[in-house]
């Protein structure tokens, strides 16, 4: 009995915390189906700058799907930026798989002094914020003639150090004995990599992919700095362009923007959990 009460209290507390964390998302969902009049009335302190506090209710008085219709059928520019985001995400993820996975395998399975130094360098670079490297990146991209093209956003992300760091952890979990056994059986390095390394390190790879996707889907600084043409901008830069007078449209666009991120997260949730657990466990 006491145990059940304890469990109930724990669950209740966690539910309250979860609700608080989810409140912004709930607001977005509620705002996306509210009428324009309701939104204007509740957001007037922000829209008209006439002082006072914003009054936002969760339940709409006059629910409507008009904003979704406006976004999906009357805003072709939304789809331009949506597919830009998809393109950037797919190409970046593909590039990261091509580059980061072999790099992580090399760091994990071929230790040496040089590798140790490089890995340390990778770790330092990973911790640097974008603002620190922005100017040097700008100069390099300009010299390469990539400024104003989506490759200026994709290429630096492809060679990002964060996936290497995550995948490396997964590769280090593979027992050395397994690799030795395969080597004894006559398997070469590439065969060991493709048939043992990739399958057994897939959790790390997929968790890195999920986190990379979420990061790329929300990129703001790199597109803003390197892309001048609005037709090349991703979704994350489109939402601020929507005027405050079209708050309903902005909410609806936010909901649609949220859907792929949620679905990808659901797809990779297990791998993320496994990756976090593996990192926490001691060998």
């Amino acid at each position: 009995m006491r145990r059940r009460m304890k469990q109930g209290l724990t669950l209740g507390g966690l539910a309250v915390l979860a609700a608080l964390v989810c409140l912004p998302v709930i607001w977005v969902l509620a705002g996306s189906i509210k009428s324009s009049v309701e939104l204007s009335d509740s957001l007037s302190p922000i829209l008209l700058e006439n002082g006072g506090r914003v009054r936002f209710t969760l339940w709409p008085l006059f629910p409507t799907l008009r904003h979704f219709m406006e976004v999906l059928l009357q805003s072709p520019s939304f789809f331009v930026v949506f597919w830009n985001s998809v393109r950037i995400a797919v190409l970046t993820l593909g590039g990261q798989l091509m580059v980061a996975v072999p790099a992580a395998w090399a760091f994990a399975r071929f230790p040496s002094r040089g590798n140790g130094f490089l890995f340390t360098l990778y770790t330092v670079l990973m911790m640097m914020p974008f603002q620190v490297t922005m100017l040097s990146s700008y100069l390099v991209l300009d010299n390469l003639g990539l400024m104003g093209r989506q490759a200026a956003v994709i290429l630096p992300a492809v060679f990002s150090t964060f996936p290497v760091f995550l995948i490396y952890r997964g590769f280090t979990e593979i027992p050395e004995g397994l690799v030795e056994a395969a080597r004894i059986d006559g398997a070469g390095d590439w065969r060991i990599f493709f048939h043992i390394g990739l399958p057994l390190g897939s959790s790390g790879i997929l968790s890195a992919a999920v986190l990379s996707f979420l990061e790329i889907w929300n990129l703001i600084e790199q597109p803003l700095a390197f892309l001048e043409d609005k037709a090349l901008w991703p979704l994350s830069l489109y939402l601020p362009e929507v005027g405050l007078g079209q708050a309903g449209t902005a909410f609806a666009a936010s909901v649609i923007t949220l859907i792929p991120a949620v679905l990808v997260f659901v797809m990779g949730q297990d791998y993320l959990e496994k990756g976090i657990v593996a990192a926490a466990m001691k060998e």
Partner: peptide, 10 residues
């Protein structure tokens, strides 16, 4: 599909 439709309507 919505991309094509919205562009056509636009």
């Amino acid at each position: 599909a919505c991309t094509v439709l919205s562009r056509a309507l636009y």
